[in-house]
């Protein structure tokens, strides 16, 4: 810090400029745009496209996307009625994407939201109360992290065959709390010894107001980074279960589309649009969330912002 004092000064001056807020992090904003784009697609899409075409048998089979020239007799002739093609169960790929992508996002947000809420409660409890309560919470959180969540989720889904999107999110939340709990606990432990918290305590502030007035605001970037990371983990688990044929079965999801594509050997039949579009969609979601997480990390920890000095 002392060594770079000369170079730091102009920066602090620049900070006064409102366009130099740390929240205007390029990675964070690009990631946010990608995720919002997918979310918007789910809201606006159904106004322009008939999403009932995502149902089985609603469209002709095996049509390639419009721009593909094919003379393969196994495929139909491309048509503008199904711009992204159709698969072997007669679903229109564009409709599947419009229905499936926002649904994946919703599962992730609900699961990570519940996990975050539980994490905040447990993390603050452990950090503030300490003692045996802290020990129990910490041990449970550590043990949960070690358990391969996808494996346990497979057991659950194998028994509960008919799952709705909301129940799926609830099941996934079971594994979304240890991360935030650990993070908040360790941050609370370090923050409660800081000057401003001691000051607040000396001034007679209640524990609750210290928690939400003094500590919470400083935790926000960490919490946000942990949240986006958890959304991504929950979507990953959900798509994984769906790709194994264990997700919600009545409504099309991106993972389920991949499952059917794998089962019908779509790769070997050259039907790349069947698995390619859902994967491309998921890559946009995952990369967007990942960029948001990295950006938020940089916002929370200024040292990460630039490698070059």
């Amino acid at each position: 810090m002392t060594a770079g004092a000369g170079t730091v000064r102009p920066r602090t001056w620049l900070r006064l400029n409102r366009w130099d807020s740390p929240w205007l992090n390029a990675k964070f904003l690009i990631g946010l745009a990608m995720v919002l784009g997918v979310a918007l697609m789910g809201i606006i899409g159904p106004l322009f496209w008939d999403t009932t075409l995502a149902r089985v048998g609603s469209s002709p089979l095996n049509l390639p996307p419009v721009w593909v020239k094919t003379d393969n007799p196994a495929f139909g002739q491309p048509t503008w009625a199904h711009p992204l093609g159709t698969e072997s169960n007669g679903r229109d790929m564009l409709a599947v994407l419009l229905v499936g992508a926002p649904r994946s996002l919703r599962i992730g947000v609900i699961a990570a939201g519940i996990g975050m809420l539980v994490g905040i409660i447990l993390g603050f409890t452990a950090g503030f109360l300490g003692g045996w309560i802290d020990n129990v919470i910490r041990t449970l959180a550590d043990a949960m992290i070690t358990i391969p969540s996808l494996a346990v989720l497979i057991v659950i889904s194998a028994y509960v065959r008919q799952v709705s999107v909301e129940n799926m999110a609830l099941i996934l939340a079971l594994f979304a709390w240890p991360g935030p709990t650990r993070l908040i606990r360790s941050q609370v432990l370090s923050m409660r010894e800081r000057g401003y918290v001691k000051m607040a305590r000396l001034s007679g502030a209640s524990t609750l107001s210290i928690m939400f007035g003094e500590i919470m605001p400083n935790l926000l970037p960490y919490l946000a980074a942990s949240f986006t990371g958890n959304v991504s983990a929950a979507i990953l688990a959900a798509t994984g279960l769906e790709a194994l044929g264990l997700g919600p079965t009545r409504i099309p999801t991106l993972g389920m589309t991949i499952f059917y594509a794998m089962r019908a050997a779509a790769i070997l039949r050259g039907m790349w649009w069947w698995w390619g579009f859902p994967i491309a969609m998921l890559i946009i979601i995952f990369t967007g969330l990942f960029l948001m997480t990295v950006g938020l990390d940089e916002i929370a920890n200024p040292r990460l912002r630039g490698a070059q000095r």
């Binding site: 391969p148 996808l150 983990a233």
Partner: peptide, 8 residues
Amino acid sequence: GSIAGGST
């Protein structure tokens, strides 16, 4: 744990 899960 997550690596083991993902590898399945």
